[in-house]
Simulated scan of single mutants.
Amino acid sequence: MQHRYGPRLSFALIAATAAIGLVILWLAPAGAVVPVHFSGRWVPDRFATAWHGLLIWIGMLTALWLVFYGIQYCFRSDVGLQASLPVYDLAWITLTAGLCALAVGSMEYAVGIKIALASLNSVMSGVFFLAVGNCLGKIRPNRFLGIRTPWTKANVRVWERTHRTCGPIFILAGIGLIAAGFGMLGLPVGLKLINCFMLGMLLFCYGLSWFYWRQERTRG
């Protein structure tokens, strides 16, 4: 049985976030509030009591952990997914880490510390794309994880070529998001920026898989 680090490390991140949140609550003045909803540019537009905010964030993180934990068992008979579990764990951990960072950043509002959550979100999203892109070529054909288009699912070679080629694209997107988060691109950071990066990658990967499939048919 292969060594798994995803479930334990992601759970440890959630536990650490809960502990930091409790410390912040202990330091926060009476009646302190924290943001629990944001606009497209990550400007807080809805607030709750600090205790309520902590419960919302920890509840969301716990739900995410249960989803990831459950998926691996729903597809436990999928040989390809089981062979790709190290990449699955890496995506699990980096996504959890990003949300934990946002949770702590939101909770710090209770003690008067206002972090630029839009920039933080952009940087953590960039880290996620960097981590996934670095390992994308290691994902084996499976029924859940990876770039699943009609053409990658139809041909193993198309799957492998698409994932190897798209890995560097994910890395470049990650670098771009991190640079935008630090204000190096002069772009307004927010959901629109991240959605543009994701849409661009989606279209590229979708089209590339079709192109590789056409090449394979021509060779055949």
Score class of each variant (00 low, 15 high):
residue 112 G to Q: 01
residue 118 A to P: 00
residue 19 A to Q: 05
residue 58 I to Q: 13
residue 49 T to E: 15
residue 7 P to W: 02
residue 206 Y to A: 14
residue 71 I to P: 11
residue 11 F to C: 09
residue 68 F to G: 10
residue 51 W to R: 13
residue 1 M to E: 14
residue 103 A to M: 03
residue 162 T to Q: 03
residue 40 G to V: 04
residue 220 G to D: 08
residue 102 L to Y: 04
residue 207 G to C: 08
residue 1 M to S: 15
residue 18 A to E: 11
residue 17 T to Q: 13
residue 109 Y to K: 04
residue 113 I to K: 15
residue 170 F to G: 04
residue 137 G to C: 00
residue 153 K to G: 03
residue 51 W to S: 14
residue 129 F to G: 01
residue 198 M to Y: 10
residue 77 S to L: 10
residue 71 I to Q: 09
residue 29 P to M: 11
residue 102 L to M: 14
residue 152 T to F: 02
residue 5 Y to L: 12
residue 198 M to H: 02
residue 151 W to Q: 02
residue 66 L to T: 06
residue 141 P to Q: 00
residue 31 G to W: 11
residue 41 R to D: 12
residue 71 I to V: 15
residue 2 Q to S: 09
residue 104 V to R: 01
residue 38 F to Y: 15
residue 42 W to V: 01
residue 179 A to E: 05
residue 53 G to Y: 10
residue 201 M to D: 04
residue 181 G to Q: 01
residue 51 W to F: 13
residue 11 F to T: 09
residue 99 L to H: 07
residue 100 C to T: 06
residue 131 A to T: 00
residue 200 G to Q: 02
residue 85 L to W: 08
residue 61 L to W: 09
residue 192 K to E: 04
residue 129 F to R: 03
residue 94 T to I: 14
residue 26 W to L: 13
residue 147 I to C: 04
residue 148 R to L: 00
residue 82 Q to K: 09
residue 96 T to C: 03
residue 91 A to C: 10
residue 71 I to L: 15
residue 167 G to S: 00
residue 217 R to D: 07
residue 49 T to F: 14
residue 55 L to A: 15
residue 217 R to W: 03
residue 198 M to G: 07
residue 132 V to T: 00
residue 97 A to Y: 06
residue 22 L to Y: 12
residue 89 D to Q: 09
residue 63 A to K: 05
residue 188 P to N: 05
residue 73 Y to G: 10
residue 209 S to E: 10
residue 3 H to R: 14
